Simulated assay, not measured.
Amino acid sequence: MSTPFEIECFEEYLTTVRNELPDGRKYFRGQTKLFSAGYALKPSIGRYGHLLDKSFAERDSLEREVLDVFTNHLVAHVQHLPRNKWEALAIAQHHGLPTRFMDWTTNPLVALYFAVRETKTDDEDNPMNSAVYVLISDPPRYTDLTRDQHQAVRPVKDLATTPARGESGYEEYGVDRLDSEEHEEASVEPTEGADSEELNDPAASPLQAPSPFEITENVVYHPPHISPRLRAQDSVLLACQKPFDALEDRDCIEIVIRHAAHDDIRRRLDQYGVFDRQLFPDLDGIAKWLRYRVFESKGEL
C-alpha cells in the first residue's frame, strides 16, 4: 500500500485532508497499527485464522447461525427489534461480536482520534506510528440497493365514488369545493411483470436489498442510531463481500501519523471537543476522559 503522506503535526493532517485527497465521497478509519505492521484492513471476523480451515459454505453457515443466536437474545435487551439482517448485524458489531462489517467514519477527526488515542509499542517496546486510512474506491451504499425498488405510484381518477348532492360535501365546514380534475386519488401501479397479489403482500415482495451475506461487492451501510456513540462518531459500516480478505491497495490511501506527534494531537483533539467524553457519551467515556486528563497527561480538570 502506498504511503504518500506522513503527518508530523495536527495542522499538517488538517491540510492533507482538506487539500491533498482526491475528490469524491470519502470514509476514514483510524488504526493504532499500520497495515505494514501486520494489522490488515479486514473485518473482525476475518482476523480469526482458524476459520480459514473451513470451507466457504461452512464459514457462511457459521456467520448466519451466530447472528441467529444473537438475534434471539435481543428481545430482552432492546426496545426495538431489528427490521432486517443489516440492522441485526450492525447491533452485533456495535456490541463486539465479530462480523463482516468494518467500522469507518465520515469524520476525519474521529478517525484521527482512534489512530492516536493510544500509542502502541513493538516487541522491543519502541513506540509505533499509527495511520488513518481513507477509503477512496467509492463502493455502493445500502440506500443505492433500495432506492429504485419502491412500487410505482401514479395519480388516477377515483371512479368508485361520486360527490354527495353533486358537491364535495365540504361546504358545511367552510372549506372550498375541491376541483375533482386537479385533486385525484393516488393508486399503486404494479411494476411490469410483477404479480399484483405479491405487491400487496409486503412479506412476499421481492423489492428488497440482498442480505449482507449475499452481496456481490462491498457495500457502505449507514446504521440506525442504536447508540449515542454511533451518532457522535459519525459511524459508517463497510459490509465486506469477502470478509477474510484484506481490502486491496487501490481501495485506500494511507496517512501515517508519526508517533512523536501523538501527544500533541491528543491535546489538540481534546481542545476541539473530539475526545473520549464526546465520542463515548456515557460513563465509559467520562471515565476514559478523566483517566487521560488527570493520570495520562497530568493535566487539570
Rank of each mutant, 00 (worst) to 15 (best):
L67Q: 05
F213G: 03
V220P: 02
S196F: 05
L89H: 07
R117N: 12
V75Q: 15
P206N: 02
L159F: 06
A88P: 07
Y170G: 00
I253P: 10
H77F: 11
T32I: 13
R100F: 10
Y142G: 01
E118H: 09
R266S: 03
R64S: 08
D123A: 09
D201R: 11
K288P: 01
I7H: 01
D23T: 11
E296P: 05
D270C: 04
Q271G: 12
Y39G: 03
V236C: 10
T121Q: 12
D103V: 11
G169K: 00
H222A: 07
D263G: 13
G38Y: 08
V175H: 00
Y221R: 06
D195H: 01
M128E: 15
D158T: 05
L238F: 02
S297P: 07
R141I: 03
E8Y: 03
L81V: 07
A92E: 09
L290R: 01
R117D: 13
H150V: 12
L178R: 06
Q278P: 04
I7A: 03
L51W: 03
H95F: 06
E182R: 08
P4G: 07
Q79E: 12
F56Q: 14
H150T: 13
E118S: 15
T216P: 01
Q151A: 15
R47H: 01
D53V: 02
E167R: 10
Q149M: 15
R258T: 11
H80M: 08
T216K: 15
S211N: 13
H262C: 12
P190D: 14
E12P: 00
P82G: 08
I257C: 07
L269R: 05
G46Q: 06
Q233I: 08
I257L: 04
S227P: 02
G30F: 02
P127H: 10
L159Y: 10
L41F: 04
G273W: 03
A90H: 06
A209L: 10
D138I: 00
F244Q: 06
E58L: 00
S180V: 00
T216D: 11
R268N: 15
Q271N: 13
L159T: 11
G273H: 04
N72Y: 11
R154T: 09
L199K: 06
A90I: 13
F5H: 15
H183A: 03
D23N: 06
L199C: 14
G96R: 02
L207D: 12
Q208R: 09
Q271S: 14
G169E: 01
L283I: 13
A152H: 06
R231P: 06
H50S: 15
T119M: 09
L21P: 09
P140Q: 04
V66N: 01
A131G: 11
V220L: 14
E63I: 01
P243V: 11
K85P: 00
E8L: 00
G38R: 07
R268K: 15
T3A: 09
E182P: 02
R29M: 03
T105E: 11
F114R: 11
P127F: 09
A152W: 01
T15S: 15
P155N: 03
G24F: 04
R47E: 00
